[in-house]
Design a protein around this nucleic acid. Structure first.
Lengths: 157, 157
DNA sequence: GTCGCTGCAAAGTCTTTGCAGAGAG
DNA sequence: CTCTCTGCAAAGACTTTGCAGCGAC
């Protein structure tokens, strides 16, 4: 539970990189590196879930109760990270957005309408085709996303 | 401006069908066919835009000021139509949802991040591939959506 | 007539903002 | 020291709900 950035496995190395990118970004914009910002980045990194601002806030409150991080700071930091393309927000019909680290490799989402679980996947063929379509329509493609809705393996039972 | 369902072109024929489906749906659920509900359906049908509840409400207020339709009714009707799969809601990062008639044939969306315009498109190859992916992951696919974000032809200039 | 529907306004959510004190550089 | 951040609480934006009267059937 107290697994901060002390151990040195693959994930930690990636995180060090991420953190360093974040610091660079902050410096470049004359912004400050605060403990709240670090904790938010780290929590996003260590979560395998897609987090809402609220769930992220709870997570942080549980893990670092003495920081007493405000929800407003979570929102502000997420907006900052999103503007800098370090996180991506997802809005799947449900109310509110969910966030995930954008540093992960690109992937799409398969959403179970029964249990709400989200499975990630990538398909090269679709990726390629998306570029072709954008080109054909004279559109400069900066990003894209795809969702498949349905009932997952577990819920089908 | 007073183009209601009096003329008899292709679009009107489709609309008659849509309206009849709507009435059937209402009857089946012991719900009533009201002028407000008709006007909402018709406005969705006659708009080529993707409408927010608010823009739909304005549209209706302009067109039928004497009806004095409340925004709450718009929300309630959209929820009803969405539950019955007659309209689809889109939520593209921006705040709030946009609605479009689901009766249209399936298509995906290309969203310009400069001007906010939405272009629709369909690609058979991607459609096919999506089914394959869902099958491969043991997922029953009920629906799917795809968005390409970028800068449109016009804004590239 | 009955029972669902509507407009209104109030209440809920979720998110953003203003401000004064705290803290990074 | 300076200037940005933060938590708090208030304000905003968007959506839902309760209610009394209205209207479809």
């Amino acid at each position: 539970m107290r697994k901060v950035s002390t151990d040195f496995n693959d994930k930690t190395i990636e995180y060090e990189q991420l953190l360093s990118d974040f610091k660079t970004l902050l410096k470049k914009n004359n912004l400050k590196f605060t403990i709240q910002r670090e904790v938010i980045l780290e929590s996003l990194y260590n979560s395998d879930e897609h987090l809402t601002p609220e769930s992220l806030h709870h997570l942080i409150q549980d893990k670092f109760p003495n920081l007493n991080t405000g929800i407003a700071t979570v929102y502000r930091t997420l907006a900052l990270l999103e503007d800098s393309n370090m996180v991506t927000s997802l809005s799947f019909g449900a109310q509110g957005k969910k966030y995930e680290l954008g540093a992960k490799e690109h992937h799409d989402h398969m959403i179970c309408t029964e249990c709400g679980s989200i499975t990630e996947f990538v398909d090269e063929e679709i990726e390629k085709r998306q570029h072709q379509i954008a080109d054909a329509l004279g559109f400069y493609m900066s990003d894209h996303s795809m969702q498949i809705y349905g009932i997952c393996k577990n819920c089908k039972k």
